[in-house]
């Protein structure tokens, strides 16, 4: 990381906690029948967020929410153009998706290309009754007609900026950080 980079914290650990509470409330209201719900997190931090949300929904509705993990690498639309190939992580969908209400969970929504890939991959696992999208941060900058149903925090970030979501499980700390990029 460039020392000269300017960064500021958008959400601290406590705020992430409260944001996830709010998102879980919205999910619980959104769904109606929680027994039909399944969460699918996008590797890697989406999976950890999905796990935290599933915990909270369990407390609210007293029912176990099945969880899966999706690695979208093999469905990316830019594999032809990039140099060294991205590292492929595991996709693990242990539950039947057909007729379920599936909510995709990711950390940051930006161009929408990850979600396009995720929708294509999910279709290879079954035919959910409905698919929703929950993200911790929506930073704008969409390149595809995709939007989230549940958003933790909306921010306006420039296309050159980076939004880093740090989670205890991966990074040892909880924070959402905006790193200002150089305007070109």
């Amino acid at each position: 990381m460039n020392v000269a980079e300017e960064s500021n914290t958008l959400l601290d650990a406590g705020e992430i906690d409260r944001t996830l509470d709010k998102m879980a409330d919205e999910m619980a209201n959104f769904v109606g029948d929680a027994r039909a719900l399944a969460l699918v997190g996008i590797q890697r931090r989406g999976v950890d967020l999905a796990r935290r949300l599933a915990e909270r929904i369990k407390q609210r509705l007293d029912c176990e929410v099945p969880m899966g993990a999706l690695d979208i690498t093999l469905y990316r639309d830019d594999l032809q153009t990039i140099g060294p190939k991205p590292v492929v992580a595991h996709t693990d969908i242990p539950m039947e998706l057909t007729d379920r209400y599936v909510i995709i969970v990711d950390d940051v929504l930006f161009t929408g290309r990850t979600i396009r890939a995720a929708l294509a991959e999910l279709a290879d696992f079954g035919r959910p009754a409905r698919i929703g999208l929950a993200v911790l941060v929506d930073r704008g900058g969409r390149e595809l007609p995709i939007q989230a149903d549940i958003v933790g925090k909306n921010i306006e970030a420039d296309v050159h900026d980076r939004v880093d979501v740090l989670l205890e499980e991966v990074d040892g700390t909880d924070a959402v950080v905006l790193v200002r990029g150089e305007k070109k």
Partner: peptide
């Protein structure tokens, strides 16, 4: 700069 950055690279 607050020293926070996503560091976990596979």
């Amino acid at each position: 700069m607050n020293g926070l950055t996503s560091s976990a690279k596979p």
